[in-house]
Design a protein around this nucleic acid. Structure first.
Lengths: 157, 157
DNA sequence: GCAAATTATGTCGCGCACGATATAATCGAG
DNA sequence: CTCGATTATATCGTGCGCGACATAATTTGC
């Protein structure tokens, strides 16, 4: 319990917070979520709900499965989230006639209208963040390069 | 409710999931957390607990405030997390004699021993992820460049 | 000195995330 | 046709994250 200095001198470089990829990734993700929160709260939605809405704006009506695949979120996360969006009046959910297992998610008029109110958010956040557009694009491309590898690694469970 | 095609044709490019920075960041962060989970579960710790332990391996004993600043986590997240680490026997917490407001967090012998068991984890994950070391380093540097900007933007609340 | 402001930690409530498991509908092999 | 496997969704429990608020100790201004 006493020789902290000796213990810390032997700290492996690869375990130092600043040498890790995992920590800046985790930190940056949470900070960006916080940035969005301020803009989304007035609209009554959370950040994960915003992600789901972006998917719906592109492909609604669609089954829960499609949202799950694109957002990389399981149904145990999506089901309650979608119920909250339904209660807010942004979506409606109904079992598919063809395949009764599927729940089709539809946008309501209010849900569509929300898109226009969100259109300025990404741009405004970029402006206020002080991050240059070049850095953002480079970062996005690098993340999109790595994502398939990560997905594949996790597929074999 | 019916003209989905027309609605989706008018989808602003900047709101499409693939054109966002926020989504790949959010997705990559969660995927990496999942990767770690498999390795950390046998040790009885979660990913956020691992982050906190990395900080402690570098600077224990230290007050909660220090962990909060480095991990960018508030005390309402840290207090229960630290209590769980204490229950597992990896840390001990005691009020500081000088400043009774502060709680000093110490590593136990088990907490120190855990470091050696974690030393191989980042390297092993890099191997299995299929991501090249070059990409990882480039991504890490880019994230570390952006992080200060994000932190500063959020400081003014 | 001492009241007001600040600081460090803690509690509460809500909404994710996710592993494990359940249930019901559909599919597929024999 | 039917029974076992697969698929889509949902439920449950645990542990974050974080805003809002509470509490107690320290500091600061006058």
């Amino acid at each position: 319990m006493s020789d902290d200095a000796g213990f810390q001198e032997s700290m492996p470089e690869e375990l130092k917070l600043d040498n890790q990829l995992c920590f800046p990734l985790y930190a940056a993700s949470r900070l960006v979520t916080r940035l969005y929160k301020d803009r989304l709260e007035p609209l009554g939605i959370t950040y994960p709900q915003y992600i789901v809405l972006m998917i719906l704006w592109e492909e609604a009506p669609c089954p829960v499965k499609t949202i799950s695949r694109r957002a990389i979120l399981n149904t145990n996360t999506l089901t309650p989230l979608l119920k909250r969006l339904e209660q807010q009046g942004y979506i409606s959910r109904q079992r598919d006639g063809q395949d009764e297992r599927q729940v089709m998610v539809h946008l309501t008029l209010a849900g569509r209208a929300l898109r226009d109110r969100c259109a300025c958010v990404p741009w405004e956040l970029l402006q206020s963040s002080g991050v240059s557009l070049e850095k953002l694009v480079a970062l996005r491309e690098m993340l999109n390069e790595v994502l398939p590898d990560l997905k594949q690694t996790l597929e074999g469970n």
